[in-house]
């Protein structure tokens, strides 16, 4: 019973944080902060990070990390832009973009499992290599296809009471990932590999296959993020999403996942992503300079992790 309460507390902890931070900004700037438009903007700004963080949640639960997702998003936007310019239909271009991103993930997964390299090092290398590849593909220039497609409207803010389709996409996939984690054998295997790889192997879990799949999936979700980013930019940009992988990882960690693996939830991750958007938005509304925002975000990351550590220590004795 006690364990149950503690467990649910760990789930709602980040949510309480989100509510507290929102309440703080609401009380300081009621007029500008609390409005449907602002609500929609914050969700819009969460969606690229949020959707990529869904994939990262699975990678981190399986005990891995992927530092290359920022570069993968850049590659994705370039591939989509090039294909649309070549006259592909938008849906096909988007799917091909996601496919290209997944391929990058498979490559990382193969290097990590077959050569037994550390994920941190492999994906650090991939981060640099893919950034270069994006620039090479694009000829070092942003690419804005002449043709206007429906992809460009994915992130558009509509009338009051509506949300951009990108936000709905993020929420829909969140439900899907949550279901995969809770109700499928694959989801259970992710937790097992992340919690204790030796045990997973002993129990007949195909550890290598699970790992390759999870890096491919993580990259595929980054690819979805690339589709949204393409919509947001209305084009491809090889220098977009630099450093975004750190925000994505931060969202997952604030949401209660452990970098040691075996732990993490979809709701936590989404709340983590929202916290960062709310802080950014609220600080802007308060007229605080960018550097204050950065400090606040940094403090929140450390605070979230230390609260988690304290809770764990409390439960051990």
């Amino acid at each position: 019973m006690l364990a149950k309460i503690r467990n649910s507390l760990s789930q709602v902890g980040p949510l309480i944080g989100l509510i507290a931070i929102s309440a703080l900004f609401a009380s300081l700037r009621w007029e500008t902060f609390v409005s449907w438009d602002n609500f929609a903007i914050m969700l819009q700004q969460t969606s690229v990070i949020g959707i990529a963080a869904l994939g990262m949640t699975m990678v981190i639960i399986a005990g891995g990390i992927d530092l290359s997702v920022g570069s993968i998003i850049a590659v994705g936007t370039i591939v989509i832009a090039l294909l649309i310019q070549a006259g592909w239909p938008p849906l096909a271009a988007a799917i091909a973009g996601i496919g290209a991103c997944s391929f990058c993930g498979v490559l990382s997964g193969l290097l990590i499992t077959k050569l037994r390299l550390l994920p941190f090092v492999v994906t650090l290398g991939m981060m640099g290599a893919l950034r270069g590849a994006a620039k090479g593909l694009a000829g070092q220039q942003p690419i804005y296809p002449d043709e206007e497609t429906w992809l460009n409207s994915l992130m558009q803010l509509g009338e009051q009471g509506t949300l951009p389709s990108g936000v709905w996409l993020m929420l829909g996939f969140a439900v899907l990932v949550a279901a995969v984690l809770k109700f499928t054998k694959f989801g259970r295997h992710l937790f097992a590999v992340g919690s204790n790889e030796l045990t997973a192997r002993l129990c007949g879990v195909p550890v290598e296959r699970v790992k390759i799949c999870v890096y491919a999936l993580g990259a595929a979700f980054a690819g979805l993020g690339a589709v949204l980013q393409f919509g947001y930019l209305t084009g491809g940009d090889p220098t977009t999403a630099v450093g975004l992988e750190l925000n994505i990882i931060a969202a997952v960690v604030i949401g209660g996942a452990s970098l040691n693996g075996g732990q993490g939830t979809v709701t936590g991750t989404l709340v983590g992503a929202l916290i960062m958007s709310v802080v950014a938005n609220g600080c802007t509304k308060l007229g605080l300079p960018n550097w204050v925002q950065e400090i606040v975000t940094g403090v929140i990351i450390v605070a979230a992790v230390s609260l988690d550590a304290l809770r764990h220590r409390g439960s051990k004795t």
Binding site: K182, F183, T184, K185, G187, R188, F191, A192, S195, N196, L198, T199, A200, L202, C203, G204, V205, G262, Q263
Partner: peptide, 23 residues
């Protein structure tokens, strides 16, 4: 270090070798 995943639940440890695709 090998036999059990200590952070996971009794259920997860017990049932890991044989799971249906949809739980």
């Amino acid at each position: 270090t090998e036999g059990l995943a200590l952070d996971l639940s009794l259920e997860e440890n017990l049932t890991l070798p044989r799971l249906p695709s949809i739980l």
